[in-house]
């Protein structure tokens, strides 16, 4: 009986069951909702969210109230940077990738330094950074054109590449494998869990706690920037605040996937399932004609309900 309960409490399993249920529900409401092409489209959108959530996942795992509210701003900025650098030409893609990664890493570095050196709580630091990014986006939009995606990039995101799946799905699978490798097979990964579960003990065992934390915020920025680049390929051209919709869902995907907000435990597999779940949910809400504001309310309420279940308090009973 306990074993059954144990399995039933597995966040990954819960998410998968809910995904199946939602797909079934969607198909009942609107026949064709769970068709192959539609599911592929949902997976592409989920991949974008999932890549953002990978960085969010790392920051949250590191504990000490770790959270990155600036991911949405980085996604938007990265899409604009990429659009302007490549400007519709395939030859510009390598440079665009470089520019995006640098942008993400830079803003992640600011977040990390603010949190570690200035001791600003992550919630406040990254919220402030989001404000800075939003302002920056307004300024940029007035000065320079929004930029266009190179054809090869759009193809990578939307056209089948291997085994009928577009490149971005493969990229996401790659991110998933990379995350699993980092978290479970590297010393860096063990140190992420260590600072998340007992920072003082990690410090006393020689873990460079501050450098770790800066690195996590930089990784979060880089993942968000890569998602921004792919988002440009998905939508063809970038527009300001295109990334705004990623902040809340990236956090929900992580928490739903079994990484509690206090950090120190969990992983990325659950987060991937959480990302798919949210995208399916969003799609259902769109199908039954609930507008953007309604969807935001549902997402906000989902996060609060999740908090109720997983608890914020002692998420780390050994």
């Amino acid at each position: 009986m306990n074993r059954v309960l144990e399995i039933a409490k597995n966040p990954l399993l819960i998410a998968l069951v809910l995904i199946a249920a939602l797909l079934f529900l969607g198909n009942t409401l609107s026949p064709g909702f769970a068709s192959g092409g539609q599911i592929l489209r949902l997976l592409i959108v989920a991949a974008l969210l999932g890549i953002v959530a990978a960085g969010q996942n790392l920051v949250i795992l590191g504990g000490r109230e770790g959270i990155d509210l600036s991911v949405g701003g980085v996604v938007s900025l990265s899409a604009i940077v990429a659009g302007n650098v490549m400007n519709g030409m395939d030859g510009g893609i390598p440079l665009a990738i470089l520019a995006c990664v640098a942008t993400g890493a830079l803003f992640g570095l600011f977040n990390g330094l603010g949190v570690t050196l200035l001791r600003i709580p992550p919630l406040v630091m990254t919220l402030g950074m989001l404000g800075v990014l939003q302002g920056l986006l307004v300024v940029i939009r007035q000065g320079i054109p929004s930029g266009r995606a190179a054809p090869a990039l759009s193809e990578f995101v939307t056209r089948p590449f291997l085994l009928g799946l577009p490149g971005i799905i493969w990229l996401w699978i790659g991110v998933g494998l990379l995350m699993a490798f980092i978290l479970h097979r590297t010393v860096f990964g063990q140190r992420i869990y260590a600072i998340g579960s007992n920072e003082q003990a990690a410090f006393m065992a020689g873990v460079p706690v501050r450098r770790m934390r800066v690195a996590l915020f930089m990784l979060s920025g880089v993942f968000a920037a890569i998602a921004g680049l792919c988002l440009l390929g998905y939508s063809g051209s970038s527009f300001a605040n295109v990334g705004e919709q990623y902040m809340l869902p990236s956090i929900i995907a992580v928490v739903f996937g079994g990484t509690p907000l206090p950090g120190g435990k969990g992983g990325y597999t659950g987060t991937m399932a959480g990302a798919v779940l949210l995208v399916v949910l969003q799609s259902i809400l769109t199908t039954i004609n609930i507008d953007e504001s309604g969807r935001q309310m549902v997402f906000g309420a989902t996060l609060l309900v999740l908090m109720l279940f997983y608890g914020r308090g002692r998420g780390l009973r050994a």
């Binding site: 010393v187 990964g189 063990q190 065992a205």
Partner: peptide
């Protein structure tokens, strides 16, 4: 100061070894 709670015993025994030998892979 000592126990990295919720983590496997192995991870609690090896952090100093990993540090002193600059291990990358665990």
């Amino acid at each position: 100061d000592g126990v990295i709670s919720g983590r496997p015993i192995l991870e609690n025994v090896t952090p100093i070894h990993a540090l002193r030998n600059r291990l990358v892979l665990a």
